[in-house]
């Protein structure tokens, strides 16, 4: 559907569509007008398409003119969200590419997905979550020795815990989320060791990042769980099971979990020096 013209690129279907939509620059529009003057069949089609475009707009315009229902008011939606998450009627799975553009991982989208449709519960992650919450309860309230190795020895701490878990680890930097590393400790987890990092926001609110072997489990999406006021996001990635735990609301904990996920995910799998 092109037409050779000496004074510009040939007319294409994109030109004709942009003509119908009134989106052509004036110079190009003149070229299309000249083309249509020569080809009445094309001119008739374009005219019909423009007419149908207008018909469709007119037919649908009523919906955009209706007053917005109260339940769609942003303030009302936000108020609802700060309570327990609504269980939406529609399960909404994939196609979240857009949502995660900003954070570069699938974590946020997956978290949402899990909230809607808790599928394929990884037993490993379940156990890890319970253990992590227990550890959180045990150590977060500890005044004298909340951590075994303090943040001033962070390099030693991560090296030590990485060696014990047999996987490269780091203490995620959560400064952007308002939390400073206090330190960490080694914990028993069945027959295996687990690592726990503890953070503080300077106002006495603490949260923990827990990691241990994820078994042979496949990578999973985020899972959210609340046990008696303690919230946890857990996931499995690259053979480790992670749990982020705190007494904060879901959205804030999610941003912490996403930050941790990103940093763990970026960790090279072959540790420098191969000292594991």
């Amino acid at each position: 559907m092109t037409h050779e013209r000496p004074d510009g690129p040939p007319i294409g279907e994109d030109d004709l569509q942009a003509y119908v939509d009134g989106r052509l620059p004036a110079s190009r529009r003149e070229a299309v007008d000249a083309y249509l003057a020569v080809y009445p069949a094309a001119a008739a089609q374009v005219a019909l398409e423009a007419e149908q475009r207008n018909l469709l707009r007119a037919r649908l315009s009523f919906k955009a003119q209706e007053p917005i229902p109260a339940r769609l008011r942003v303030a009302n939606i936000m108020a609802d969200q700060s309570r327990e998450p609504r269980l939406p009627s529609r399960a909404i799975a994939a196609a979240l590419a857009w949502l995660v553009i900003g954070i570069g991982t699938g974590a946020a989208g997956m978290a949402w997905y899990e909230r809607l449709a808790p599928l394929g519960p990884a037993a490993t992650a379940d156990h890890a979550t319970s253990d992590a919450i227990t550890a959180y309860r045990t150590y977060v309230g500890e005044r004298l020795h909340p951590v075994e190795v303090a943040a001033d020895q962070e390099a030693h701490l991560t090296q030590w815990l990485s060696r014990r878990l047999g996987k490269p680890l780091l203490a995620p930097n959560l400064t952007a989320q308002g939390y400073q590393l206090m330190g960490g400790r080694l914990l028993p987890a069945g027959s295996e060791p687990a690592a726990m990092f503890m953070y503080d926001d300077g106002k006495g609110n603490r949260l923990t990042v827990y990691a241990r072997s994820g078994g042979s489990g496949e990578a999973t999406s985020f899972r959210f769980e609340v046990q008696e006021g303690v919230s946890a996001f857990s996931w499995i990635d690259k053979g480790l099971s992670y749990v982020v735990t705190g007494r904060i609301d879901r959205d804030r904990l999610l941003s912490v979990a996403e930050a941790a996920y990103r940093q763990f995910d970026a960790l090279p799998q072959t540790p420098a020096g191969g000292k594991l």
Binding site: L72, I77, P88, R90, I92, L99, S255, E258
Partner: peptide, 16 residues
């Protein structure tokens, strides 16, 4: 319902 789901999702992921 669809619009509400959309807005909820947008708000939940506003920071991202």
């Amino acid at each position: 319902d669809l619009v509400q789901d959309t807005l909820e999702r947008a708000i939940a992921h506003w920071a991202q």
